[in-house]
Design a binder for these strands. Sequence first.
DNA 1: GCTCCCTCAGAATACGATTGCTATTATAGC
DNA 2: GCTATAATAGCAATCGTATTCTGAGGGAGC
Lengths: 336, 336
Amino acid sequence: MADLKQIEIARLAGVSQATVSRVLKGDPQVNDAMRERVLAVVQELGYVPDARAQSLRSQRTRLLGLVVHRASEALAGDPFFSALIASIIEQAGRYDYHLCVDTARTARSQRAIYEELLRTRRVDGLILVESETHDKRIARLSGEGFPFVLIGRYDPADAVCSVDNDNVGAAFMATDYLIRTGRRRIAYIGGPAGLTVTRDRLQGYKNALESHGVGYDPRLLAFSEFSERSAASAMTDLLSLTPPPDAVVGLDDLIALSAMREAKRHGCRVPDDIAFIGFNDSPLCHYVEPSLTSIAVDIPALARKATEMLIALIEGREPQPKRQIVPARLVKRESA
Amino acid sequence: MADLKQIEIARLAGVSQATVSRVLKGDPQVNDAMRERVLAVVQELGYVPDARAQSLRSQRTRLLGLVVHRASEALAGDPFFSALIASIIEQAGRYDYHLCVDTARTARSQRAIYEELLRTRRVDGLILVESETHDKRIARLSGEGFPFVLIGRYDPADAVCSVDNDNVGAAFMATDYLIRTGRRRIAYIGGPAGLTVTRDRLQGYKNALESHGVGYDPRLLAFSEFSERSAASAMTDLLSLTPPPDAVVGLDDLIALSAMREAKRHGCRVPDDIAFIGFNDSPLCHYVEPSLTSIAVDIPALARKATEMLIALIEGREPQPKRQIVPARLVKRESA
DNA sequence: GCTCCCTCAGAATACGATTGCTATTATAGC
DNA sequence: GCTATAATAGCAATCGTATTCTGAGGGAGC
């Protein structure tokens, strides 16, 4: 059953191996009668071509690589990644590609990823997620002309293919919603100040304030590390203002959630006294109390665009545009 | 830089291509001086062998396949899978293997997995997660002698390699704990009835009841899909019993949380009126209110054993024993 | 000095599928 | 009837590496 080769099919069908190959590739230069004959044998024996040989000959593995720049422990707890992986698998499958996933946490494994996946031609292209310290790698990738696409990072300066959420628009949406529902002293708790995502969402926040003529108060800005304590402490500071904020836009669900907890601990009622909005619409949002209103990132769209761009690159087409933005969506729950 | 072949290295080092191959494979039958000479050229040019050619020649791709029998939407929200994937990647990497992930939910994708991954020899072996008990594919895999390992399923009858949590023991632990803390009408919300994990945990639940002489009431059993709605609806049904349950063992954290939420919506106080225990100890458990007591599954151990067994099979060693059990641990929080 | 053995590197081949080129046949056009 | 043309299948080279086979060279032992 297993371990059949084209040449055996050819022998049994009384044709040459080249003909079997042509039939399987759907080559029109094959007579119908002969095609039938070959297909009958293929069907009967359940022959499937050997991907290894095809890869060598065609110089294509039909394998995409997904590299996540995060330690596996951090990856482990984050549902964003299982969603992303699942979506990419699904999209890749539509084009007969498979997905090879790797994490690049240590320096050693970073080298490993790039060398072992890419230079060895094990995959036809790469999708990179959450790359931060990789500037040199990206330059190298571009330099070698290897097909790759970034998710969640962009650099207007370079002509690299990327897909990202509409962070400015998403923060605008959150802030706009809060203003429309009567909030006026809206605080923003960002992540580390250096991150693009922190800056972009701050911009969206400011845009919304301005578009409604709501005054911008820099004291309502806070920047937090990605830790529960840091977010809680930022919240405490905000609550000491007079008057205190009546709403908070958090950089992500965990920051918003930690802030919300802290506010409750200070006796604030949510959403009556103060409203909260997070980002990512993680499963967490459903389960906390009050449930957290959040800006949903359209992960399937992110995956679809990234996959399609990458496959286009692999197959020699030039994707237009090189940078794609996926719109976000407000998921209203109890906290705002 | 790219697209170097052994033969070019050979030419530059003034040796034959075979020698280059030998040096790279660490063949001892090669003179030190010549080895140095070759390695110098390899280093300088940054040559890496082509994995496609190696695969064809060696009949090994050094790629493991991970097949998850769940729709991508269900996979998406579940942190268990990102943890599992991350751990398997890490373990596989220690043996210089990479991981190819696929989902198998639709008939089309099932065919895709088995035909395209395995029969095409695209991967050297498979790890199957959450396969249903009556899976014909598994019989076929065994029949064709392909290396594969099951996670979360076993069948004492067949000699298939598998790794599983101690589901019976874990559910026993949960139920036993509830009984010891005074609960008597303990409900069990399983997943789909065909899954081994559903059955095993049910068994552990029954064992605990029996060992304490607590009566077993089949009306306290419910089976849910992996969706919030389904779990909530199961909970609603359970609450309509008289008397209602005073505790719930959920198949996983998401099911337990959905049920807990639903119970609270019905006015139940947790844990006073009703206690909840989930499985997987996902990050979620910390953040909900009350925080969820959960049975922690040792995912890294699961991944390590599965990966090691699979690689053993691939490399022709017979793993002993064929079935491995990973113990669980109770993480006590507020909900029970 | 000769044989024997041992070490080691090169030549040749295999892995299984694809594809450019060629050979054959059929058909048409004159 | 003969050539031009098209249709179609086969031959053989090729993809880049691993490995078997072969042979050259050197040292040891008599």
